[in-house]
Computed example of a mutant assay.
Amino acid sequence: MSLFDQLGGLLGGESAGVSGAVGSLLEQHGGLSGLLEKFNSGGMSELVSSWVGTGSNLPVSAEQIQQLLGGEQLGALAEKFGLDPQQLSQGLADYLPQAVDKLTPDGQLPQGNALLSQGLDMLQGFFNKS
């Protein structure tokens, strides 16, 4: 069980499923840089640049997430985390721009353990909003 899976279990509900799915995507793509490369190669480099950069974040749609990940990968993730694929794609669309933005506060990908520490802090803050 990955660290994101464990954290997701603590959060509960849909938030747990989305955070767990993000963790799985990060693992499957070799970390944040690998996941962002998938978005870049999928024709979404303008979105990624806005998320990493210091300006405002451009939105991504659930349909773009579905198109990028494909039905098989999205379905497997949704099943693993107990969500409907549409629910998961919408959750990822809502969450990823903010997550990437918070993981890249200086407009650059953090190195090594700094990413893990920042990621955990960011996830706790993101899902503990009132």
Results as ranks from 00 to 15, higher is better:
5 D>L: 06
9 G>T: 12
100 V>T: 08
27 E>P: 00
3 L>A: 11
80 K>F: 01
7 L>V: 14
88 L>Y: 09
35 L>W: 02
9 G>P: 04
18 V>I: 13
124 Q>S: 08
98 Q>R: 10
80 K>R: 14
26 L>S: 04
120 L>V: 15
112 G>S: 13
24 S>V: 02
117 S>Q: 15
20 G>C: 04
64 Q>A: 11
31 G>K: 04
32 L>W: 03
6 Q>K: 14
44 M>C: 02
91 G>K: 01
71 G>H: 10
89 S>G: 09
52 V>M: 02
103 L>I: 13
19 S>C: 09
68 L>W: 02
69 L>F: 00
65 I>N: 01
80 K>W: 09
4 F>K: 06
46 E>W: 04
85 P>R: 07
111 Q>G: 04
72 E>G: 09
2 S>Q: 09
106 D>W: 01
38 K>C: 00
15 S>N: 12
18 V>F: 09
1 M>F: 06
53 G>E: 00
38 K>G: 00
128 N>Y: 13
92 L>Q: 03
119 G>W: 06
56 S>Q: 15
89 S>F: 05
64 Q>S: 12
37 E>V: 09
44 M>G: 02
45 S>F: 10
24 S>D: 08
120 L>F: 06
83 L>V: 06
32 L>M: 04
29 H>L: 03
62 A>M: 04
79 E>F: 14
6 Q>C: 00
28 Q>G: 07
39 F>I: 10
75 G>K: 05
24 S>K: 09
87 Q>M: 02
58 L>H: 03
104 T>D: 01
79 E>C: 01
75 G>T: 10
48 V>L: 10
108 Q>Y: 03
28 Q>H: 10
30 G>Q: 08
120 L>T: 06
128 N>M: 14
123 L>K: 01
38 K>R: 14
92 L>C: 05
72 E>A: 12
47 L>D: 02
107 G>N: 06
85 P>N: 09
126 F>N: 05
15 S>M: 02
40 N>S: 15
128 N>C: 12
17 G>S: 08
24 S>L: 05
26 L>R: 00
103 L>W: 04
117 S>I: 15
53 G>R: 03
27 E>Y: 03
36 L>D: 08
20 G>H: 00
34 G>Y: 00
130 S>M: 11
2 S>T: 15
34 G>P: 05
76 A>W: 04
70 G>M: 08
64 Q>I: 11
20 G>P: 02
98 Q>A: 12
60 V>W: 02
125 G>A: 12
49 S>E: 11
79 E>A: 15
34 G>A: 10
98 Q>N: 07
33 S>F: 03
27 E>Q: 12
85 P>E: 07
33 S>N: 14
76 A>R: 10
106 D>K: 11
37 E>K: 14
83 L>P: 07
126 F>C: 00
125 G>W: 05
4 F>R: 03
27 E>M: 08
111 Q>L: 12
81 F>Y: 15
85 P>H: 08
89 S>A: 15
90 Q>G: 01
2 S>M: 07
36 L>T: 02
92 L>W: 00
